[in-house]
């Protein structure tokens, strides 16, 4: 039986639960006593995934909303920078022509 690590590497892109389900089915086919252990592994993995999801930053919004907010922030920074640049480069001795 292949041992599947419970701790998932955050950088690892494979978040699939299918290998664990597969291991359980294999144990059931073999009538192995390890089936309960494999089921517990699956439960632990699901619980761990829940905890990981609750602590992940920036997923309280949908990607579309987040992108919109990001664009708004970029626009704010750009506008404020331009405004500052404009006023800092003003020559106070320039007299506007009538």
């Amino acid at each position: 039986m292949a041992a599947v690590p419970v701790q998932q590497d955050p950088e690892d892109d494979d978040y699939s639960l299918l290998p664990l389900v597969h291991d359980i089915i294999k144990c059931m086919d073999k009538d192995s006593q390890d089936v309960h252990q494999e089921i517990n592994k699956l439960k632990a993995r699901i619980q761990e995934a829940r905890e990981q999801i609750s602590t992940m930053p920036g997923i309280d919004k949908s990607p579309e909303e987040q992108q919109q907010q990001l664009q708004t922030l970029r626009e704010q920074v750009r506008t404020k920078s331009l405004l500052l640049q404009k006023y800092k480069s003003l020559c106070v001795f320039d007299i506007p022509k009538a």
């Binding site: 930053p57 920036g58 997923i59 990607p63 987040q66 992108q67 907010q69 922030l73």
Partner: peptide, 11 residues
């Protein structure tokens, strides 16, 4: 979600 985490840092 991982991409959103990076975007969150940028934000």
């Amino acid at each position: 979600a991982q991409k959103q985490g990076k975007v969150h840092q940028e934000m």
